[in-house]
Design a protein around this nucleic acid. Structure first.
Lengths: 346, 346
DNA sequence: CTGAAAGCGCTTACAG
DNA sequence: CTGAAAGCGCTTACAG
């Protein structure tokens, strides 16, 4: 059993066909300017005729870099692949890398064996840097890669004590803005349906909600946490109503939960937004599809992707051992669930 | 600007520390049996102490293979990343590759520039084979890779005239089974909501439906095609009802469309399954969440992934130039939307 | 601008 | 079982 003679045409063959040295041929492919137009043309013609494709493994080895960046999705349940914001994140990463001529390489390890293999792969010269998504607090990969000298950037905030680069969306600010928006609409009995308490985004969003209420001198103990699903939202909404009958607004920490709240309210015959305003979080495709359409906090996922890519690129370029970070603000997408449409005067 | 001295510890260093030659050290990592236990232990100890990680770029270059397989998702809209069956497919691929000690490397090219870079990457010795997902008829990547001698396997049937390996789910059989199931439940006026006609799965599923009706000597012109969404299903259902008031069963080519049909029927006060039975396609998470739960045709996505991996592995091992194919049968997941629950006698 | 040469870190016949 | 040596396909100072 022998390896296929796959990459039949090598740089050497191209150089010979073009009548130049291997060094010169190499220079035209690496974009070095030190080549005469004549030589360049000859090499390019020869390459085209022979169908030359550089062997990137050889190039990585010789040059000490690979012109590619790894994106690792640390998500044992593959949930990321159903998260509507995930493609937007990938798109941002891909666009930024692409504009620098870099290749994006993605990984989704599922088992311990996968992770070990992956670590060796990433540490083994196949990528210039690594972007890490969806890691939980027990994940050791970031530190292990970093200790090997590989530039690493996290999506989300690292756990305490970890000195590592990251890009993070300010959940606190997003929640505060959402709540302020409700207050500005004249709402006064504003409830919050929080994410499961073990997520740190739950604490951040709750905190933002409380701060906005505090600033407006409103009471703020109308909080229930729930599973991030429509059902979770329904149950939380029901519990909230037993605590306060005349809630006039709800800020939910996810669109799915907001929809659950909406269903409960509508089943009770309350009009949205007339009787109760509802705002969600994530601005997922769901939000635009409800009746009435759901206002939501939009996380700048494309921007987050772009920034992650920028950070890792500047780390590889600077060859620094310092860490970088960037915090992005969410925006508000206001739809009819929080604001009565103003009739357009003729 | 110089490359980081990243992979500080090389095979050479390990060999020296272990007091053996580089060749022997290499043999313990490649799993060659030709090594004494003593030497093996010494090398493993040295590697652990020094924190050695093999440089895989070098290994790929020297060995002529990479122990990794590329998975390319050719989906300009990133839609795959929101498709509930997509993670199952990846899981199948990952599990099979993993069990053979192979690394799975994923790509999602978005632009022409991405595709060119990707082709060079894949052809450049970084992967041993390629799995292609979601390609449309104009895609040239499969042929281009194959012509470079790289083992390629498609998920889905290749367009006519393309001699290439593939794994494919038999849509025709799935549709036929679903329709037969409805007939066995005593239904006689069975409508079909088809996928958009430009998809070839639409034709396959329609054909399966027709065949089942034909075999049972039933009429079969109750067909409407629609967008693959709940709204599409609603509109198609409404159109069908204008053509035949007393439809007693619906076979929809996707779960989302089936749900649309369900909503329309329920809004009209018809009981499911008593008055009308409904079955979908894909057995997505949606199906289990409806009221009543939706019967559906389940595509064996994990199996498809596993088979794709198996095929590409056997192609790399056999080093053959022939092509392989495998066709898988869907199964039926029967829930309450098509069969009245039989009360359990005490 | 160009070429000869060394070297990137590994694997693998080949000869013991 | 082991080692010396050649070689994988490229890049890049170095010296013209």
């Amino acid at each position: 059993m022998e390896a296929v003679s796959r990459s039949a045409v090598t740089l050497d063959a191209v150089a010979r066909a073009a009548g130049v040295s291997r060094a010169t041929a190499s220079r035209v492919f690496t974009g070095s300017s030190q080549v005469s137009d004549e030589a360049k043309r000859a090499v390019e013609r020869a390459a085209a005729e022979l169908g030359y494709v550089p062997n990137r493994a050889a190039r990585s080895l010789a040059a000490g870099r690979s012109e590619s960046v790894g994106v690792v999705v640390l998500d044992p349940g593959w949930n990321a692949f159903q998260d509507p914001s995930f493609p937007r994140l990938l798109q941002g990463i891909g666009a930024e890398l692409s504009s620098h001529g870099l290749q994006m390489v993605m990984f989704a390890p599922q088992s311990g064996a996968d992770s070990i293999r992956l670590e060796q792969y990433l540490a083994g010269g196949h990528v210039d840097g690594v972007l890490l998504l969806r890691l939980d607090d027990h994940e050791v990969l970031p530190e292990r890669l970093q200790s090997r000298g590989i530039p690493v950037v996290l999506g989300g905030r690292p756990r305490n004590g970890l000195d590592i680069s990251f890009v993070h969306v300010d959940n606190h600010a997003g929640a505060k803005n959402a709540t302020q928006h409700l207050i500005e609409q004249g709402r006064r009995r504003i409830a919050h349906i929080g994410a499961p308490q073990l997520l740190d985004l739950a604490a951040d969003r709750l905190q933002g909600y409380r701060e906005a209420l505090w600033n407006a001198a409103l009471r703020c103990d109308l909080v229930e946490h729930a599973e991030q699903s429509r059902e979770g939202g329904e149950m939380a909404m029901a519990r909230l109503l037993t605590r306060c009958e005349d809630i006039d607004a709800v800020f939910a920490a996810s669109d799915a939960m907001a929809i659950g709240a909406m269903w409960v309210m509508q089943a009770l015959g309350r009009r949205i937004p007339d009787d109760v305003a509802i705002i969600g979080f994530d601005d997922s495709p769901l939000a635009a599809a409800t009746q009435p359409p759901l206002s939501s906090v939009r996380q700048p996922m494309e921007d987050m992707g772009r920034e992650m890519a920028r950070l890792v690129l500047s780390m590889t370029a600077l060859n620094t051992h310092g860490t970088l970070q960037k915090i992005l603000d969410p925006t508000l997408t206001v739809r009819e669930s929080t604001s009565r449409p103003v009739p357009v005067p003729l």
